[in-house]
Design a binder for these strands. Structure first.
Lengths: 111, 111
DNA sequence: CGGTATCCTTCACGATACTG
DNA sequence: CAGTATCGTGAAGGATACCG
């Protein structure tokens, strides 16, 4: 990829799009949990500190962005499962890259 | 890298650290601008919509996180230059990866 | 030029209660 | 179980004025 001035605007735009999708406070945590399919209540317990309201909201946003799929089983009591879409799966390498950089960052910071 | 349950906690923590550093509203835009050294006023003009207050604030945070270096030239009128630190430079591959994913995401969304 | 300081508004988020 | 609805608060951010 080039970095000349013509590409700067497009780079900006698309990097921002990515940040908007995964930059929310709980987004990466939710995506990580959904590396295996989980029910709503499981997610709630797996994310200490999140409220029901926030979990619902962030899941809806991820769903709207095509990252997460919501599977409703019409039964009593209700059962709803969440999983990554194929597009959501493509975020994994990005999360790994962010993990790698985070390691380096924390090392450098703690010196 | 593995993704067994033992690694999940560490992955989370460090991915979140990365998001905290570059997840701010203007952070990636500022970092992109600083791929070449720039003065305060140049940044202000390069980022339409940002306020002086926000630019100062985000630059200070990036400085505290070791991403950006602030170079003051003690002269009248004042001259202050900002540039990426070596650690800041290491963010470039991550921005490129985010760019790539953003391209894919926007393509899929516009279909 | 490159900032601070101050005030003000908005809204993200938490807490709580209720429901199919 | 998996939500929605409502209210309240604090912090983020904008607008404006001032300063070394």
């Amino acid at each position: 990829m080039h970095l000349d001035s013509k590409n700067h605007a497009r780079l900006t735009c698309e990097v921002e799009s990515t940040i908007k999708v995964i930059g929310g406070r709980w987004k990466v945590l939710i995506i990580r949990e959904l590396m295996t399919v989980k029910r709503f209540g499981e997610l709630l317990r797996a994310l200490p500190g999140i409220t029901q309201k926030m979990l619902t909201q962030q899941l809806r946003e991820l769903e709207d962005d095509g990252i997460v799929r919501r599977q409703v089983y019409p039964q009593i009591p209700p059962k709803v499962e969440y999983e990554l879409t194929p597009l959501g799966e493509t975020l994994k390498p990005l999360l790994y890259a962010m993990h790698e950089w985070g390691v380096k960052y924390l090392q450098q910071k703690n010196q």
